[in-house]
Every structure is written in C-alpha cells, then in structure tokens.
C-alpha cells in the first residue's frame, strides 16, 4: 500500500503509540519478576511482560520502517526522551502493589483487545498481521487480569479495600485512552485505522460488568483533565523508568550487545 507523506507520518505516530504502550507496560510488569505473591505469578507476569515487549519490538520495528530514516526498534526504544514517548500515562504508573498492577493491567487489556480486534481488518497488511498475532496474546492477558480482579475484589475485605483504592487512584488515567486526535482522525479518514467511535462505551460496559461481579465501585466520572500523553505529555514516573531502561545503551554509544 503506497502512502502519502502526511499519512505515513500519522501511521508512524500511531505505531509509536502502540509500541510504546506495550514497551512501558511490559517494563513495569518485568519489575515483578522474582517478587510476585506466588511463584505462579512470577511466571504469569513474566510471560505477559514477554508478550508485550515482543509486541512492542514488532510495532517499533515497523514504525522505524515506515519512518524510513534508517532507525531500528532499539534506536526508538533506547534513544528517545520522555516527551518523545507516546504511551498512555496509565501504563507508566508504578506497580505500587499487586492490586494496582492488576487494575492497571485490566484497564489496558480491555482497551487493547478492542483496538487490536479492530486493527485485524486494517488494509495495511503488516499492521493487520501484528494485530491478530498480538490479539491472541492479549486475550490471554485479559483473562488473567480479569480473573485476578474478581479474586481481589471478591476475596477478603482487605483485598477489596486495596483493589478499590487502586481503582480510585488509576481511574483518572483512563479518559485519555479514548481521545481521538488529528493523527488518528487522518488514519481513520484514510481507512487505515477502522472507526473507533463508541470504544469508550464498549470499554466502560466491560469494566462495569466485571466490577459488579468483583464487588468494586466505579469512581465518579470526574475526568475533565485529558492528559495528552499521545503527544508526549507524561507523569514524572516515565523519566525514571526510561533512565533505568536506557542507561546501558546510552552509556556505551555504538556498542553492540
């Protein structure tokens, strides 16, 4: 498929968003490795991190190709600064505890399933292929985070309290997930990214159903502030995450690993 420059740029942007979401969330999950509540979760969280970073690698690789400036997925991951990262603020939030980790993951998984399902019919073959491969993994991730959310919400009083607390803390990062900006408008207009209106309603519907079952309350919808992470506006957590992630690659420029 031959693309105009402005569409190319938009696609590059879109691929960065897809890749960065997965890279940063995968990084957060990988921090659990060796420290999870049970060894089964060391395996599960490690596995999800592995899937997400693998997906990130594919999206960023394709992004670099679309950009056509000879950069690689590693250049994009290791040599961009905070404001050049396009991931959602939600995924850069720290692990805090298992409840925050699961709630963050569940919010993301429901969203990711919607977007990836949508993208499987994308006319850009590479993107459609990546989406359907990622979707298979994402369905498992959703099953994992949903099952845990039910257990934490409907487990003990303490677990319910901790999980409700995590929901309340993370809720404010969920609105921007569904903001559609010029980049996406253009891609939708050109038929590259399928129509995404009504996604927030679908997302809310899933969340609502699970929350009912998990005995969790949806916070008051007080989401006036739209964060703008898709344009590089982040919380302060991202800088520290990147400092750790990028230190080695940046300390030895030009070295092969």
């Amino acid at each position: 498929m031959k693309l105009d420059n402005n569409v190319k740029n938009a696609l590059f942007e879109f691929l960065l968003r897809m890749g960065d979401d997965r890279l940063i969330l995968g990084h957060r999950l990988s921090e659990w490795c060796g420290h999870a509540p049970v060894i089964e979760e060391d395996i599960a969280l490690g596995n999800i991190a592995l899937d997400l970073i693998g997906q990130a690698s594919a999206f960023l690789n394709f992004a670099a190709g679309v950009e056509g400036k000879g950069r690689t997925e590693d250049d994009l991951a290791y040599f961009r600064n905070e404001t050049e990262f396009k991931n959602l603020q939600l995924v850069e939030q720290p692990n805090v505890d298992f409840a925050h980790t699961i709630v963050r993951q569940y919010f993301f998984d429901v969203y990711s399933n919607l977007v990836l399902t949508n993208l499987t019919s994308c006319p850009v073959n590479e993107l459609a292929g990546m989406a359907s491969k990622s979707l298979k993994e994402s369905k498992y991730h959703l099953r994992h985070s949903k099952q845990w959310l039910l257990r934490l919400g409907d487990g003990t009083d303490l677990s319910n309290e901790k999980t409700q607390n995590a929901v309340n803390n993370l809720w404010r990062f969920t609105k921007e997930i569904f903001d559609i900006d010029e980049t996406e408008k253009l891609l939708i207009e050109k038929g590259i990214v399928p129509e995404m209106s009504g996604f927030r309603e679908k997302w809310l519907d899933s969340i609502n159903k699970t929350f009912m079952e998990a005995k969790l309350k949806l916070p008051e919808d007080n989401l006036d502030f739209s964060a703008g992470s898709r344009n590089g506006f982040h919380t302060e957590h991202l800088g520290h995450l990147l400092a750790e992630m990028q230190i080695l690659a940046r300390s030895y420029p030009g070295a092969k690993w």
Binding site: S30, C33, G34, G46, L50, G54, D74, E244, W257
Partner: peptide, 26 residues
C-alpha cells in the same frame, strides 16, 4: 538486570530465561 538490558532482543531473552527459572522452581 531485566529492566536495564541494553537491547530489546537481549531483554526478551533474559526475561524468558528468568521466567524459565520460575518454571523450574515450580
């Protein structure tokens, strides 16, 4: 060292290795 691995490929391999170890433990 997972969070500091110097390339995505190395990160994936290391993560898979540590995950294998959890599997062996289990």
């Amino acid at each position: 060292w997972i969070t500091r691995a110097p390339s995505l490929r190395r990160k994936l391999i290391l993560l898979a290795k540590v995950q294998d170890e959890a599997g062996h433990g289990l």
